[in-house]
Simulated assay, not measured.
Amino acid sequence: MPGAVYSGRGALRKIREITEGRFKKAALFTDRGVEQAGLLKIPLEILNEAGVETVVITDLPAEPNCDEAEQVMERFRRTGADFIVAAGGGSVMDVAKLASITADGSLTVRQLLEDPGLGRKCVPTLMIPTTAGTGSEATMNSIVAVPEKQLKVGIVNPEMIPDYVILDGSLLKNLPRKIAAATGVDAMAHAVECFTSNKANPFSNLFAKEAAKLIFDNIEAACEDPEAEEAKTNMLIAAFYAGAAISSSGTTAVHALSYPLGGKYHIPHGVSNAMLLLPVMRFNKSACLKEFAELYDTVVGKELQITDEEKADRLLKRMEEIIRRLEIPSSLSTFGIGTDALEELVNAGMDVKRLLNNNKREITHEDARRLYLEVMHG
């Protein structure tokens, strides 16, 4: 778990308490969208008040590959910063976490792909998510694309667990609905996948269930109402909880099959997970009836007069309603992907054994083929 977490209205003011008298120079990782939205104004003012010199690194690609991440690492090392602040979505935080374990220049990102355990934290980190979804602020994971494999790969190392996290709903006020929806459903996928994972345990279940409850109760308002600050803060907390569940349990076939969609076709991570979430969970239903029923009792309320199968069906129907209402693309054809890409997708998805092994129901090549066909036609 991260060392300290601050949430709620005004949580950004904690930056001064975290940094004053402790750090001399901060590298602020972000992207141009966050910068142009004016979200850096308050963090930069507070760092200045705390007497911390700040260098802003903005040229981070939306979904970086390992070589692009390496270029950012090199720029970061030249700053000589003794503290890292990441303000952005999952990609920004993932790159910042990699920077924290490569700051001494002894490792490259490609070396970490070969052996993630080599990394040791050199520089402390503060994560400030500006989307409610990836949960990167709570995890030991960093996801990068590997160009020659046309696949996204997770680098997992407990040294990357952030030292400080700030969850402030005010940062989500002007988040575009499309991004809020995709990242929110990504958080939903994390919660449901971790709860139904072969690695699920009492600790991960505690966080996954609470995340699911917060998401089902708040996602629509958080995406549709710019003024719904409480719902947005609840979604930030939910995404954090779901991230904590990932660190203790792990995602499953939804994420495994979505990695090639991001790696080759650059479909946003949240969108590819949202497209695959229902097909995979319907496929998993026979193996996850008890878990689905328990999640239904958590997010809707216990109903003694209906069976576990009915609860599972109602849970899946509610998930479908949310995804449809938020107007997330449901078909790969939207992105120009047709059946000619099928075998390549199947082979790449089936290579993600780390996550497929977590799936309660075994997935064969033929199963993966059917699941991809389902999302090709929407």
Rank of each mutant, 00 (worst) to 15 (best):
M1C: 01
A4F: 15
G8Y: 07
A11V: 02
E17Y: 14
I18R: 02
I18D: 00
K24Y: 10
K25Q: 11
A26D: 08
A26C: 13
A27S: 12
V34I: 15
Q36S: 15
L39A: 02
L47V: 00
N48C: 11
G51E: 05
I57F: 00
T58F: 01
D59A: 08
A62R: 12
P64T: 00
C66D: 14
E70R: 04
Q71W: 00
M73W: 03
E74F: 05
F76N: 05
F76Q: 02
G80L: 12
G80H: 13
A81S: 03
D82G: 07
F83N: 06
A87M: 15
G90I: 01
A96E: 04
T102F: 01
L107V: 09
V109E: 08
R110P: 00
L113W: 07
L113T: 05
D115M: 07
D115A: 13
P116G: 14
G117T: 05
G119F: 03
T125I: 15
L126D: 07
M127F: 03
P129D: 12
P129A: 12
T134S: 15
G135Y: 11
A138M: 08
T139D: 06
M140S: 12
M140N: 14
N141K: 10
N141M: 14
A145N: 09
A145S: 14
A145D: 07
V146F: 06
I155Q: 08
V156T: 13
P158W: 01
V165Y: 00
I166C: 10
L167I: 04
L167F: 10
D168W: 00
A180H: 01
A180D: 04
A182L: 01
T183H: 02
D186W: 06
M188K: 01
M188Q: 09
A191D: 02
F195E: 00
F195W: 08
S197V: 05
N198V: 00
S204G: 07
L206D: 02
K209Y: 14
E210F: 01
E210S: 09
E210C: 00
K213C: 08
L214G: 13
D225W: 02
A231D: 06
N234F: 11
N234R: 11
I237P: 00
I237Q: 03
F240C: 07
G243K: 14
T251C: 12
H255E: 03
A256S: 13
G262V: 05
K264G: 14
H266Y: 09
G270V: 07
G270W: 02
M275P: 03
L278N: 02
L278Y: 04
P279C: 09
N284F: 03
K285N: 13
A287V: 12
A287C: 04
K290L: 05
F292C: 10
A293Q: 02
Y296R: 14
D297Q: 12
K302E: 15
L304S: 15
I306R: 11
I306L: 09
A312W: 08
R314T: 12
K317H: 09
R318G: 02
R324M: 09
R324Y: 13
R325G: 09
L326W: 09
S330V: 14
S331P: 04
F335P: 03
G338S: 10
A341E: 15
E343I: 05
E344T: 13
E344W: 03
L345S: 03
A348C: 11
A348W: 03
G349W: 03
G349C: 07
M350W: 06
M350E: 06
L355A: 14
L356H: 09
R361N: 10
E362Q: 15
E362K: 15
R369G: 00
L371K: 08
L371P: 01
H377T: 15
G378N: 11
